[in-house]
């Protein structure tokens, strides 16, 4: 699976030999896919995304591009960009996290966790 050419401009994106993305956990694939979909929906340009991610990665002193920490920063950059774009209002993501936490704790193990009403 290869990616559109513009995505290859993403700073330090881990790729496999076929030019596809590499993940070390399911959530990483999920946040990657969400970024692609939000971009396709016109929330930001890929250039803006590359810049936001680059800024987040620049906070990392030694630049050792381990896959795990890379997507931790990806997640932080995505939250920052959505807030900067006013897609997320102040406190909104924190409220949603709390709602999911509450939903999880109220869900018996083995049942899908559903957010009733955020």
């Amino acid at each position: 699976m290869t990616l559109p050419a513009e995505y290859l401009a993403t700073p330090r994106l881990p790729l496999d030999e076929d030019g596809g993305p590499v993940f070390s956990a399911p959530w990483e694939a999920r946040i990657f896919a969400m970024t692609v979909k939000a971009h396709e929906a016109g929330v930001f340009t890929w250039g803006e995304w590359a810049e936001a991610l680059g800024a987040e990665l620049a906070k990392d002193g030694d630049g050792s591009g381990e896959t795990e920490s890379y997507y931790d920063r990806w997640l932080a950059a995505f939250e920052t960009l959505l807030t900067a774009k006013n897609v997320a209002a102040a406190g909104q993501l924190a409220d949603l996290r709390k709602a999911w936490d509450k939903a999880a704790k109220a869900t018996p193990h083995g049942k899908p966790i559903v957010l009733e009403n955020a």
């Binding site: 959530w27 999920r30 946040i31 896919a33 969400m34 979909k37 939000a38 929906a41 929330v43 931790d72 997640l75 995505f78 939250e79 959505l82 897609v87 997320a88 909104q92 993501l93 924190a94 949603l96 996290r97 709602a99 999911w100 936490d101 999880a104 704790k105 109220a106 869900t107 018996p108 193990h109 049942k111 966790i113 957010l115 955020a118």
Partner: peptide, 29 residues
Amino acid sequence: HSELSEIELRVRALETLLTEKGYIDPPAL
């Protein structure tokens, strides 16, 4: 009961937000 990690909570919060705003469609995701 179930437990979601801090990372999972953040990812789900983002997905809910983007879904509510109509930017992503969970089946397409």
